[in-house]
């Protein structure tokens, strides 16, 4: 940004992009026949990443304001299930999407109200909601997949809208980038964004300055819920079906992605560029290791190591930033 800040600010903003580029280059260089950069592989990454990515963008914002949401892994398939039910009931897919996003937001609202009213750790509240909604989903869906292809065929307008291509760029990637830009503007340039950081950094100070920290948290939960609905529907459209296994593991993968992207578990720290790249870093490692013929079941071992390594790098960069600006 400004030269007088020295390298500190530069470093804290650039550490995640740097990790991203290095990860990318490593897999480019070492995947057999450079298969990693094969356009088909890159297109697959671009289509798959936004499923988790869209939700993780919301989780990043929520974690900056100091809270967790583990219930995403159940809210997402629940919204996907309800979407399928709406289609079966004859609702137009666009209308169903427009209905489901507010429904997702209200599930987030419920989380937010429970967390702020009870004062219990959000980890506990949302863990309970994770189990609660998963149970509900399994009972009402009977664990059976529901094909939505009769209602949204792959060549329908709705399928193009969510999962088509613009030129050679998958629509999912554009949605992901679009949402990231909007949330980035809210977070970094808007007043509400400053309240999110203040709430996560020191809620007492924020309250003393007249910020309604409960409202800030509730709105962040609603953003996460709305994005869960969107991601669940986007994924179902890509798969052509609701499946009860949608979203499994997202609750922790999203945290891993966001933390790799430089967000602190204690709140108050992080930026949107880092969050967006964090998701891609996790996905690239996943994809790249398989191309390197690491056994599928061993991939998580490396992701675990990578998360620790990247968090150490981020911490060093943030400390540099703090020291250089005084």
């Amino acid at each position: 940004m400004q030269r007088r800040l020295g390298q500190g600010l530069w470093l804290s903003f650039i550490s995640t992009p740097l990790v991203f580029i290095i990860t990318f280059l490593i897999f480019w260089a070492f995947s057999p026949g450079h298969r990693f950069v094969d356009p088909r592989n890159l297109a697959a990454i671009a289509k798959l990443t936004p499923d988790l990515g869209v939700v993780a963008l919301g989780i990043g914002v929520l974690m900056i304001c100091g809270e967790f949401d583990l219930s995403i892994a159940s809210v997402l398939p629940l919204c996907s299930f309800l979407f399928a039910q709406l289609l079966i009931a004859g609702v137009d897919p666009f209308a169903a999407l427009a209905l489901m996003v507010p429904v997702g937001a209200s599930l987030g609202l419920l989380n937010g109200v429970l967390v702020t009213r009870t004062g219990l750790p959000s980890f506990i509240i949302t863990l309970s909601m994770l189990l609660f909604w998963r149970g509900v989903l399994y009972v009402v869906s009977g664990l059976m997949p529901i094909s939505i292809l009769p209602y949204v065929p792959t060549n329908s307008d709705f399928a193009h809208f969510l999962t088509g291509q613009v030129g050679s760029v998958p629509a999912q990637l554009l949605w992901f980038l679009g949402i990231a830009v909007v949330l980035g503007i809210v977070l970094h340039l808007g007043r509400f964004g400053n309240w999110i950081y203040a709430t996560g950094s020191n809620p007492d100070a924020a309250r003393a300055m007249g910020i309604d920290t409960h409202l800030v948290k509730i709105v962040c939960y609603m953003i996460v819920g709305a994005l869960c609905a969107f991601a669940g529907i986007m994924q179902a459209t890509r798969l052509g079906s609701f499946t009860a296994s949608q979203g499994i593991g997202f609750e922790l993968k999203a945290v891993a992605a966001v933390v790799v992207g430089g967000v602190s578990l204690r709140g108050g720290v992080g930026n949107m560029l880092g969050i967006a790249l964090g998701v891609f870093i996790i996905q690239i490692i996943d994809n790249g290791l398989i191309l390197l013929q690491v056994p599928v079941f061993g991939v998580n071992t490396f992701i675990g190591l990578a998360v620790i390594l990247f968090v150490i790098i981020n911490n060093l960069a943030n400390r540099q930033f703090a020291e250089q600006t005084t």
């Binding site: 950081y197 996560g200 950094s201 020191n202 007492d204 100070a205 108050g268």
Partner: peptide, 12 residues
């Protein structure tokens, strides 16, 4: 103790 947010800039 409760005056400032440590992770935010002076201006913010």
């Amino acid at each position: 103790e409760q005056a400032l947010c440590p992770h935010l800039s002076i201006a913010r």
